[in-house]
Structures are given as structure tokens and as C-alpha cells.
Amino acid sequence: MDKSIISNIVILACLVLVQVLVCNNIMLFNVAMAFVFIYVIIRLPMDLSVNWLLTWAFFSGLTVDAFADTPGVNSLACTLLAMLKRPMLYAYIPRDDRTKNIVPSLSSLGFAVYGKYLLSMSTVYCLLAFTIEYFNFADVREIVIMSVASAVLTFLILLGVDSLMARKDH
């Protein structure tokens, strides 16, 4: 358990750096932006208590906010995402599996389930983040386009990140 927490902290630190130094500066076609740092929230084991999950999510969001000077945007979106994590995953797996301690990943869930779970999480996160930040600023159509495009980009990149992790685990 301790080992997995430390490895998650290291992964989070790397992803936050990638997020603030690279991803935050790239907006593909002026609509699509990748949120890679939410990977750890998606990956944290299901037996971790909700309180810890929320704390983890809030502080990872706050760190990105401090770097990007977007006060509250990512911390709020991350907290809401963490709250939705369990219902979202449980919607895709059989009832019997819900008692097991699952570490959501491509290798543990298979592409069908993990793909759906990852895409839902990215879509929800992008919708939340863009709505929170651009609420008074852009119209609904623009927010939806940005969210969907960003969700697809985030999904593809996180699939890649996850297969990198799988290779490391082996």
C-alpha cells in the first residue's frame, strides 16, 4: 500500500509537470487541450477511502491551479470528478466485481470496460473544467466543442500513458 502511494505521488508529480509545462501551452486547432494529470485520480485503487480520494483530487487540482493561475478551476473540477469516480466505474462492471479491490487500468479491466470508463471520466472532467472556467466568457456551443475535442485528446493520451504504466508494471 505504502509503495503504491509513493509510486502514485511520483506519477502525479511527473504528470503535473507535463501538464503545466507542455499540455497547458498547447491547444490543438484552438479547441482541444489534454488534461493528463487526472490520470492518477482515474488510476487510484478502488479500496482507497473516498475521503482520501477527494483530498488527493483536490490537492492535485490545486497544484495545477497554482502553476496555471486558474484559481479554483481545476481543484473544483477534480473534487467533483473524484466524487463521480466510483459510480462511473461501477456502471460498467458486473455487480460481483464491485467488492474486489480494482486498480483501474487497461490490463485489469480490458479495453471494452476501461475504454468506456476512461472516456466517461475524461468527458466529465473536460465539461466540468471548461464550464467552470468559461462560464461567463464563451457560449454553450463553444464550451461543448472544446470539451468534446479535449475529452477525445485526453482519452487518447491517457490510453498511451496507461500502456506505458502497464509495461513498467511487468
Binding site: L54, A57, F58, G61, D65, G72, S75, L76
Partner: peptide
């Protein structure tokens, strides 16, 4: 815990 974090974020935001 959830409410606390959400409120903190909202204060930062607003």
C-alpha cells in the same frame, strides 16, 4: 470532506 473542498474551490474561484 466533499463540501469542504468544493467550498474552498468556490472561494478561490469567486
Amino acid at each position: 470532506v466533499f463540501t469542504f473542498y468544493v467550498l474552498t474551490s468556490c472561494i478561490l474561484l469567486v
